[in-house]
Amino acid sequence: MKFGLLLPHFGEQASREKLLEGSKLAEAKGFDSVWVRDHLVFEPHGEMEKPNRTFYDALTTLTAIGAVTEKLELGTGSLIPFRHPLVTALMAGTITQLVGPRLILGFGAGTFDHEFEAIGWGDLDRVEAVRSNAEILKRVFTENDVTYDDGIFSFENVTIEPKPVGGRVPFWYCGATPRSARLAAEYADGWMPGRISLATMDRRIQKMREMTDASGRPMPTVAVIPPTSIEETREEALQHVNVPGLLAWANKAKFAVKPPRVPSRPSRTWRASSSSATRTRPSRRSGSSRRWASSTWCSTSGSSSTDSSSRSSSSAARCCRSCADAGTRGADQ
């Protein structure tokens, strides 16, 4: 099991000092990895973030952090496919040449249509574009004179140099839906959801194991990036969490595993030994969905051997004091 941090490269917290000095401190304290998100036209998530549209580019940020650290793995959680995959291939290969074989490329389809409409890709099948990126990157990282055409991207006799140091860069699929887990089991080296309950995550992992057992593929590394808030006490930590906003998000989600209903306790009746009087204690209601967990938890890692051209991608992101599990209780995603 490994631990990483999502970096403050967006919104009001984005700053050179926090990114570079914070990453050096994370390495000194024993964290295994640091992670970035990805947007082109950033719109803050209302339930979690203040309305500041500052957003430092994901791969540029990781390059700078790699230059001031030695061992931290550098991950994207996740890139969205608004770049041509050949551009991503060149950037990824360059990063590894400059800072070593520490990069993990997590990809997701993205949430917002406007980011793709802005570059004329509004009709793009983004889920299929992620698959295209996986296939193209795999080939141009290890081959020369590549010809490719899948109906989304096409090119002939392309060679991208430099190749990544250490072999093919691990490719992870990021997302919490059942389909995202299935796609990770089908062609990715790892799977990483964000906000997800432990019960939902367990069900996704079971499905992935069924698929990889049947196909003979290695089980992808499993990781998670949950919302976190860390303070000396649970009460202090919760002061920084928008509980109503996260609950509203959770209850709009469509594919979560619902927790079992907790039955109300029956009324209790007892008698005083010295009299015949009886007292009835009212039954308690089952626990409220506003109850939040603050214990430390982490993802489980599947064994993640890859082919000889691929570096191991066994680092699992990602957690500290987590609100994610309780935050999706009662959700219908």
Rank of each mutant, 00 (worst) to 15 (best):
G77R: 07
L90M: 11
A92E: 00
G122C: 09
I119N: 13
T111F: 09
V99M: 05
I104M: 14
F112N: 12
I104G: 11
L74G: 02
E117Q: 15
I95K: 06
T88V: 14
V127G: 11
V127T: 10
G122N: 10
D125H: 04
V130N: 08
F112R: 15
A118G: 14
L79D: 10
V127Y: 04
V127C: 01
G75Y: 12
P81L: 10
L124M: 13
G75W: 10
G120H: 03
R131Y: 09
L98S: 05
G108S: 10
V99C: 06
T76C: 12
R131H: 13
M91S: 08
L90P: 00
E135G: 01
D123N: 15
I95G: 06
A92C: 08
I95D: 08
I95F: 05
I104C: 07
G108W: 04
E73L: 12
G120S: 04
A118H: 14
R126F: 07
G106L: 12
H84I: 02
A129S: 14
G75I: 10
D113L: 15
P101W: 02
N133A: 14
I80C: 09
G100A: 00
R131Q: 11
E117P: 10
G108F: 03
I95H: 06
G77Q: 08
V99W: 04
P85A: 05
V127A: 07
L72I: 00
L79R: 07
T76W: 04
F116H: 05
G77F: 13
L74Y: 01
L105A: 10
L137Q: 07
L86F: 05
F107L: 13
W121N: 01
L137E: 07
L124S: 03
M91Y: 04
L79F: 13
P85C: 06
G75R: 13
A109M: 12
F82Q: 07
M91I: 13
E135I: 14
R83Q: 11
D123Y: 06
E115M: 12
E73I: 08
L105M: 14
L98A: 13
G100W: 00
D113Q: 15
T76Q: 05
H114Y: 13
L86E: 09
L105Q: 09
E115W: 11
P85K: 04
G110L: 07
R83E: 05
G93L: 00
A118S: 15
L86Q: 06
G93N: 02
V130E: 07
E115N: 12
G108R: 05
I95A: 07
E73Y: 10
I95V: 13
L124E: 01
G75P: 08
R126P: 05
V130I: 14
R83K: 10
P81Q: 12
I95T: 05
F82A: 03
V99T: 10
G77V: 15
T111G: 03
R126S: 08
L72D: 01
T111P: 00
T76H: 06
Q97Y: 00
R83W: 15
G100I: 00
G77N: 12
T96L: 01
H114N: 14
